[in-house]
């Protein structure tokens, strides 16, 4: 069993590609993204829209990585959610296969 960090980023769709680039450039071995259905924040409810640009949608990105990798991405992601709508959570997790992360 190996100790790792789990990053959970909820980010508005227009900034999604920027978040992916930050993770990839830092050498993250993998991440999974999925579309959020609805939520509440900033004093109002929101839900996934039907417009073509999807500019109001929120995307959740989950990735597990080593401590040294998370240190590389954290400042850039903090900057990103400083200007865009988003939330960042980091937690400790245990994984079975060290080489996958």
């Amino acid at each position: 069993m190996f100790a790792k960090k789990r990053l959970e980023l909820s980010i508005e769709k227009p900034a999604f590609k920027r978040a992916c680039r930050i993770l990839e450039d830092a050498g993250v071995k993998g991440y999974t993204a999925f579309s959020a259905f609805a939520g509440y924040g900033g004093g109002m409810r929101w839900q996934k829209g039907t417009d073509l640009s999807a500019s109001q949608d929120m995307i959740m990105i989950i990735s597990v990585m080593d401590q040294d990798v998370i240190e590389k991405v954290i400042d850039a992601l903090e900057n990103l959610i400083g200007s865009h709508i988003g939330l960042l959570n980091i937690s400790d997790v245990t994984v079975l296969r060290d080489e996958k992360f």
Binding site: E12, K13, P14, A15, G42, M44, D51, L52, S53, A54, S55, Q56, S83, H84, I85
Partner: peptide, 22 residues
């Protein structure tokens, strides 16, 4: 507009509140 411009504004002016312009 409510398709092309909101998407561009989220990229270029992220501090602007979409709840206002939309």
């Amino acid at each position: 507009s409510y398709i092309a411009v909101p998407a561009a504004m989220r990229l270029a002016l992220p501090k602007a509140q979409p709840s206002i312009y939309l």
